[in-house]
Design a binder for these strands. Sequence first.
RNA 1: GGGCCCAUAGUUCAGCUUGGAUAGAAUGGCUGCCUGCGGAGCAGCUGGUCGAGGGUUCGAGUCCCUCUGGGCCCGCCA
Length: 680
Amino acid sequence: MTFRHLLKVVRELIFLSAKNLGYISEEREEDEENFDISDSPRKEFGDITCNIAFKLSKSVKRRPYEIARDMVEKELNPHIKNYQKNRSQISMLPALDVLVSAEAHPAGYINFRVNYAVLGRIILKEIITNPNYGSFDIGNGQHVIVEHTSVNPNKALHVGHLRNVILGDTIYRMLKATNHKTTVLNYVDDSGSQIADIVVGFMFAGFPLEPKIDSNTAIMKFDQYCGDEVYTKINRMYDIHPFLSEKRKYVLKEIEDPKSAIAKFAADITLRVLENQLKTCWRVKARYDLLNFESHIVSSGLWSSTLGMLRDRGLLILENNGKNKGCWIVRTRNGGDVEEADKVILRSDGTSTYIAKDIPYAVWKTGLVSDPFSYRKFAEQWDGSILWSSTTNDSDQKGNTFPDFQSRNMTITIIDSRQSRLQNIVSYILSSLKPEVTNDKTTVEKRNSNDYIHMGYEAVTISAQTAHMLGLDIGEREFMHMSGRRGIYINADYILDRLHEKAYDEAKKRNPTLSENSLNEIAEKIAIASVRYYMNKHDLNKIISFDIVESLSLDGDTGPYLQYSYARAQRILEKSGQLYDSNVEADFELLNENSETDLIKLLSKLDLVLEDSVVTLNPKTLARYAHELATTFNFYYEKIPILKEKNRGTMQARLVLVDAFGIVLKNVFDLLGIEALRRM
RNA sequence: GGGCCCAUAGUUCAGCUUGGAUAGAAUGGCUGCCUGCGGAGCAGCUGGUCGAGGGUUCGAGUCCCUCUGGGCCCGCCA
């Protein structure tokens, strides 16, 4: 019995009442079901509110208030008062005793009041006894592929990448909690020109293979060294030293041949950078199931077989005229009303464009081809799971049994919205390749719209203030876009380290006797919570203007604030010692303060919130809920004494509430990838 | 020129999907609250022509249209 069930029961009750009074006729049932049941915006309007009277007033030709009053007096209140009699008509009937009354508000709403003694008893008991409270079945075991991160392996992650990693990992956690089978992919573009840049830097521009170690600074991570030093500098050197540009072309060509010495060197570098990048991803508690290497798409034959398939279906066409003469292209003006330029897939010299490898990859993901890859174990991750890697060397997979990575249900690709156009093209190609299921229209519609989802989000930019701090001139602009090539970005580990230091200082102030180890452990968890909450709480369609000063704050609407409210609750439970026994029945009628019933109501909404977040693929909703939980509890904490309460029964009931709050918040933490702390 | 996205308090953002009752946080500024369950907190004050103009509606921050300002994309770059 959660708030979701409660809303459902109220809906049934309203619907039944409206029908009994003739407001809704049998034949128009479907149209008339379009009314809202939701929680009331303000306490004085009760707990649950319904706008059906507004919706009916047109067809019934009476004023909303009259309809509302009629329903309340003749049907709703009698039902609520005598709910026992109506067992046969209303399902889930235990819920009816959760309602106290209905009333018609002069504005036209029907407002219901909830019996918190009953709701509290049901919901708190459920929370305390069910460790998975909040998780429920939306996915029905459906297999969903989530691709995220996919950072070119020539640089360290910056805060923009962090948004991708964290959003992706949170989506994975949400899907898992709602009974989806999940496979998380990380695509490694190991054959692009950015790799060539690094190789040129090492082999022809004299960059040492190991970063220089300053006497007083820590060793620079290799991925950071490649990105900060080699990549940005080599890009400036091309203009000055034309011979390096020549070398770049040469390297690019050599990389294509897996047996060449340069290809092997490039592969070593790629692997080293990748391992460094993964450390950062793992640090923020992301995890993956599989690494897909771009080069394997070619060497496995997936590339050529997909090309063949596209040609056979007439999707890939050799252009004979115009500016694209001699290229193999996809005509992207689908549907007729959108006029777009055709997209070149193969250049006239036979080489492939940037989007090209995305197509076979998407085809592979959605299971439109049988799996051409072999797999090997790449690493064991922090959560104990195996990270696999694609390989084209069959001997690698000897004795390995690996999961089925392809999904025939749904794939979600998380890339920032600058890639929207390309993702639309990929999606269009996939839907054209898909076997038609013409006998079931809804299936076709559902498949085409839901199968391949691009989850886009806006970029993380550098705020004006931070840009000034970094000595960047941005004129009158309010923010500045990051650029890997130009070396304009804020390193992810750098931000995490600063947060760690700050959290360490704060924790030491409060816990002077704790060991260094414990303090560092706490500081790290606070740093991660801070950055994960920050990335999750923003709207996907909004640019994040990243400000270093503001992002280092540990107060207010931040991850640490959430952790703090959890720690407070745990300290109460800890101190209660023998006084609290979660197995003992409590008298929940004693929880009648507003601050208590507000909290109970909020706790009962977790599954509603989770459902909303999953259906709309929007972690923000969950993050906001976590914050609301924390503020509601903090208010309660300040206002109501618990351990100092004289009445043992009241104390017991309050302790149950505190315990339940902790469990719910921790479950939300698990979804957001934040660690709960008992002490900080 | 075409497409996508954004505009709400000094600042950073919720609320818009599904229209409804007095537009919410955080932060900043000012003011209170620790011998009390942890002050990484709580309370109060301050602060809003919801970018502009039309339209739909009994009712628009929310839906539709136009405009303005800003960002991104539109390559045989990646």
